[in-house]
């Protein structure tokens, strides 16, 4: 489990709080710098007929913009910059984690849980601002027999409250499991040596490709679920 360990690169203490710059913080900075740098570089000479790099920048923009529009409607578009930031941040962190000897920030439950909790708290606040107390109707689905209502409402509330947990655990578990698998099979390659190590190596090549897919997919799932939850807050049911 060495690959998941937090190491303090710069010890920092701010008002008695441990604000050390760790390898986790370093990779967050790298991810943010890479994405920002790429997008700004790609748009250095914006033109009507996009260059290759500009196409990628526009593609990512349109991809997330369509995601927000399709899942939250036009009312969700003010939150597009946030969803874009979220998607690109998680995607970059997941992808960076696949580089050997790097650190996967999203394999830490505290990071994913903080993100999920922040998102769902924000969405709940948006819901109450938009609908006032009427937001509570979210927990009372239409067309349910009155007898079942208390039970359904309780279930709805529990499912709403567990959203941050399911959202964060999904990302964290996928990242951790994938990287652990890679580590285990990497160890097999070394242990079986030059003669027997080819089989786990071949497996690892395929599995790495799968992990790239998972890295993208989990960022996508995280972002799209944010859009869906946002849609609940904006339009109720």
């Amino acid at each position: 489990m060495h690959q998941f360990e937090i190491t303090r690169l710069v010890e920092l203490d701010v008002f008695g709080l441990d604000a050390s710059f760790t390898n986790s913080g370093l990779f967050m900075v790298i991810a943010a710098v890479l994405v920002t740098g790429f997008l700004v570089w790609a748009m250095r000479r914006p033109s009507m007929v996009p260059s290759r790099s500009q196409s990628i920048a526009e593609l990512s923009y349109e991809f997330v913009a369509n995601m927000v529009r399709d899942n939250s409607g036009t009312a969700g578009m003010p939150y597009f910059p946030f969803v874009f930031t979220l998607f690109m941040f998680i995607l970059a962190l997941n992808m960076l984690g696949l580089v050997p000897y790097s650190f996967t920030v999203t394999s830490h439950i505290i990071v994913t849980f903080a993100l999920a909790l922040f998102i769902l708290t924000g969405i709940t606040i948006i819901g109450f601002i938009k609908h006032g107390a009427g937001f509570l109707r979210l927990f009372v689905p239409k067309g349910v027999p009155v007898v079942l209502l208390p039970l359904i409402a309780v279930i709805e509330i529990i499912s709403y409250l567990t959203r941050p947990l399911s959202l964060s655990v999904r990302l964290f578990a996928n990242m951790m499991a994938g990287h652990t698998m890679l580590k285990v099979f990497g160890a097999f390659v070394v242990a079986l040596g030059f003669l027997g190590g080819w089989a786990p190596l071949a497996f690892m090549v395929g599995f790495t490709a799968l992990e790239v897919l998972v890295a993208f997919l989990q960022a996508y799932v995280f972002a799209i679920l944010t859009c869906i939850y946002l849609n609940d807050a904006l339009h109720l049911h």
Binding site: S24, M28, V29, A32, V35, A57, Y61
Partner: peptide, 22 residues
Amino acid sequence: PQLIWLAIVFAVFYVLMAKLAL
């Protein structure tokens, strides 16, 4: 430390995206 740097980096990243790139 992770939470503090997550907040800092994410906030800065958000501003960079919202005001510069997007």
